[in-house]
Write a protein that binds this DNA or RNA. Sequence first.
DNA 1: GCCAACGTTGGC
DNA 2: GCCAACGTTGGC
Length: 156
Amino acid sequence: MATRRHWLVKSEPGTYSIEDLERDGKTCWEGVRNYQARNFLREMKVGDALLFYHSSANPPGVVGLAEVVREAYPDHFAWDERSPYHDPRSTEDDPVWYMVDVGFVERFPEPLPLPELKKDPALEGMELLRRGSRLSVQPVSKAHFDHIVKLARRRS
DNA sequence: GCCAACGTTGGC
DNA sequence: GCCAACGTTGGC
């Protein structure tokens, strides 16, 4: 079996929250419109583990875990003129944007707020904490991933 | 609401 | 290929 990879995905809770994913069980991760983030989406394999991050929240932070349940396929919202994610450069014959399906794994009893993650020396070098980092889909090292899960357990 | 950081666009 | 202008992200 191939080694499972680890990632972090951001969502604004007003758009789609961990509570929404808990309710839905799974969802398609549409709307990624950044090439670097898209390339990471296309690298994802079924079973890869995801940190679910609430951006533009009070406070922002990691709120739970999800997993990849379907590998990358064309993001058809790009073809929909009424969608906020519409992008005329992407067509059915030649898709530009992709999405995966993600499944709910767990919601942390308490969110891990960004300011606390910033203070943690064990998370040094994490992409999320890099100054000016805006990537909405990013790889996470296993060590950083495991440490964050451990922090979540410690809080409960 | 502000603004720093970043990505994209388009003129040249 | 350079780079200024612009739009977006996202913390604060």
